[in-house]
């Protein structure tokens, strides 16, 4: 069938409507906020003039309507979040206390199930391994690489290579790695790179994704492979932003490269480091596609998000799926507390 451009026309029209809506909403909001306060300001000025003429006491200078401004700035975000995330989060929490079809209240039964079923306990342990290892390893690789290629020749190319996996979807990345881990029996030629390396070193080919807990680590490699690029880009930018005079001063003091790294580089990039670690931790808690594509949670590799999807959407167990989601909410609390402390420090500093 040949390509009919005219048939695509409504799509462009729709896209245009979308862009017009964008300009109208954002532009309108800014305009509104600009014009309305200006009008109030003029009125106030007039009042002041009138007051000074009549000799009456000056009207009490009202606190600037900061709160009102904030409300308008935040309005679109708050509305969308309420519909798209807050509502669903509340609904999920309620569902977690109900049965599979969401018809009757069952109290804490779903939570009891979660902490007594050995396969689910395994899922929780796996998630813990993921959330500890991924941010740590991905950030380390990103940082080391950022330091190593900084100011090197072909820096842009070198960075693009590491960033490349970020442009690939999680599903695509998992397929790529499944290919790396592929297994063929000894008599056959290997098609997986990892087994080919093992064979050429004189070993026996292995079915990598079958053996727990090795398989979980192999899946973590996929996530690290994707996310190291993110860490590298953010950290590299932070490193470049360290003021030259500090570096110069330290150099004149004769500090060693090692000291330089720990005493100058690390403290300077701390805010960026926090952003990276926090973002990666949350992304890892929610990891879903990788496990689903690579093993579907078989061989003891499942994680919370994958199990949640299976329970709620494939098995029709809304209650149990929701309970797992609520447990995710709980897991994020330490990160939230850490973030609160950071914010406090920032406000004080």
């Amino acid at each position: 069938m040949e390509f009919d451009f005219a048939a695509e026309q409504p799509k462009f029209l729709m896209l245009m409507y979308g862009l017009i809506a964008f300009v109208a909403v954002v532009g309108g909001l800014l305009l509104l906020l600009d014009v309305v306060p200006a009008w109030f300001a003029r009125r106030r000025e007039a009042q002041l003039v009138a007051a000074s003429v009549s000799g009456a006491p000056l009207p009490r200078r009202g606190k600037p309507q900061e709160g009102l401004f904030a409300l308008f700035f935040l309005l679109p975000t708050l509305l969308l979040l309420a519909v798209g995330l807050v509502g669903p989060a509340i609904r999920t929490t309620l569902l977690s206390f109900m049965d599979a079809g969401s018809n009757n209240w069952v109290g804490l039964r779903n939570y009891g199930w979660m902490f007594s079923d050995p396969t689910i306990l395994r899922v929780l342990t796996n998630t813990l391994i993921w959330v500890i290892l991924v941010p740590l390893v991905a950030t380390s690789f990103g940082l080391i690489y950022a330091v190593l290629v900084d100011k090197a020749r072909l820096e842009a190319v070198a960075k693009s290579l590491i960033f490349l996996p970020m442009a690939i979807s999680f599903v695509g990345a998992s397929i790529i790695w499944k290919f790396v881990y592929a297994y063929r029996s000894e008599e056959q030629q290997q098609i997986g790179l990892l087994n080919q390396i093992v064979v050429s070193l004189g070993g026996e080919p292995k079915q990598w994704l079958l053996d727990s807990p090795l398989n979980t680590f192999l899946l973590i490699v996929i996530m690290v492979w994707i996310q190291a690029g993110f860490a590298m880009v953010v950290l590299s930018a932070a490193i470049k932003a360290i003021p030259a005079d500090i570096v110069e001063a330290a150099r004149l003091d004769g500090v060693s490269p090692w000291q330089m790294f720990w005493q100058i580089t690390m403290p300077s990039i701390r805010p960026a480091l926090i952003v990276v670690v926090v973002t990666l931790s949350i992304a890892t808690l929610k990891v879903f596609d990788i496990v689903r594509t690579a093993t579907n949670g078989n061989y003891d590799t499942s994680v919370i998000a994958n199990e949640m999807y299976n329970q709620a959407f494939r098995y029709g167990q809304n209650g149990q799926g929701s309970a797992l989601a609520v447990f995710l909410f709980v897991l994020v609390i330490p990160i939230v507390i850490y973030q609160i402390r950071n914010l406090r420090q920032q406000r004080e500093g």
Partner: peptide, 24 residues
């Protein structure tokens, strides 16, 4: 200023839409 600009956008959008409508 912002107002003027968005009016311009609208005009461009209108012309584009017309052109596409004709092809259709």
């Amino acid at each position: 200023m912002a107002f003027a600009r968005s009016r311009q956008t609208l005009a461009i959008a209108g012309v584009l839409g017309l052109a596409l409508g004709v092809t259709a």
